[in-house]
């Protein structure tokens, strides 16, 4: 059911349980990318000032004339490093994320959910060139939208996913029924239906009251009451399903 409703990626790991990864869509990834660009620009600026200073100090203090080429060369090396080495090293590191991704709270993992290897990090980074084409990452975005896991070409080739790093913090405030008594549903429900009801109870506080009522209205046949009362009844059913009360 989660497969239909959410951006959750269910993966069965070797231990026989399913874990749920929270996939990150184009928007947070775009923000992370923009932050990375700023970081790189900052490094480039600091680097160029540094190169200039080194050259200046060498010529004044020691009288070495290294030639202007040294500074230019260092700048080329830094720019090259930022284009390729930056994301390879950061994503293969313990962070599994570039600074931008880390700030946004994203992380790169294998499709199996395990941390990515150096190979994968290299493949992802190399193919970014193609994903960027023709401009602003259009190829990557379109590819991402064409599959169910938001994988750009680089992700597909490297077999990686970008997910939210801390899935342990759902936006729901609290579980439980706020003192609403468990209520036995008047009909037998499939597992899928039960799951939907439990999720409703978990989330209804996130929505405006009118929206919660509107959704509850769909279950009129089951709850047999209207408005706010219908909401409480669904929550009661969730309590009953969970075995609470």
């Amino acid at each position: 059911m989660a497969k239909k409703l959410d951006t959750l990626q269910r993966i069965e790991i070797a231990e026989g349980v399913e874990i749920q990864l929270h996939l990150a869509g184009p928007m947070p990834r775009g923000v992370a990318f923009a932050i990375d660009c700023l970081v790189k620009a900052a490094i480039l600026i600091v680097g160029s000032i540094g190169c200039g200073l080194i050259g200046f100090i060498c010529s004044v203090l020691f009288g070495w004339n290294l030639g202007s080429g040294l500074g230019t060369g260092l700048m080329i090396a830094i720019a090259f490093g930022l284009e390729f080495v930056y994301s390879i090293v950061f994503e293969a590191s313990r962070w599994s994320a570039t600074p931008g991704k880390r700030i946004v709270g994203l992380k790169v993992v294998r499709t199996s959910g395990a941390p990515i290897s150096w190979h994968q990090s290299v493949v992802r980074t190399m193919l970014r060139v193609v994903d960027w084409l023709p401009f602003f990452g259009v190829t990557g975005i379109i590819t991402g939208l064409c599959n169910d896991r938001f994988q750009r070409l680089g992700d597909l080739a490297a077999d990686t996913l970008v997910i939210y790093a801390e899935p342990g913090k759902p936006k729901v405030v609290a579980s439980g029924g706020d003192g609403i008594a468990p209520f036995r549903p008047g009909a037998s429900l499939t597992r899928e239906d039960q799951g939907a009801i439990v999720q409703y109870a978990d989330r209804f506080r996130e929505w405006p009251a009118r929206r919660a009522e509107e959704l509850a209205e769909h279950l009129r046949g089951l709850t047999r009451v209207e408005g706010q009362e219908g909401v409480s009844r669904i929550v009661g059913m969730a309590q009953w399903i969970r075995g609470e009360g």
Binding site: E15, I19, G113, A201, R242
Partner: peptide, 29 residues
């Protein structure tokens, strides 16, 4: 892992499941 599959099967709700899910993901990593 055992706790997670129990909690998922018994539908203990988002908060509990997400917490154990998070632990399993981190441990797996």
């Amino acid at each position: 892992c055992g706790d997670l599959s129990l909690a998922q099967y018994r539908m203990y709700g988002l908060v509990l499941c997400e917490r154990i899910n998070g632990l399993v993901i981190r441990g797996y990593g």
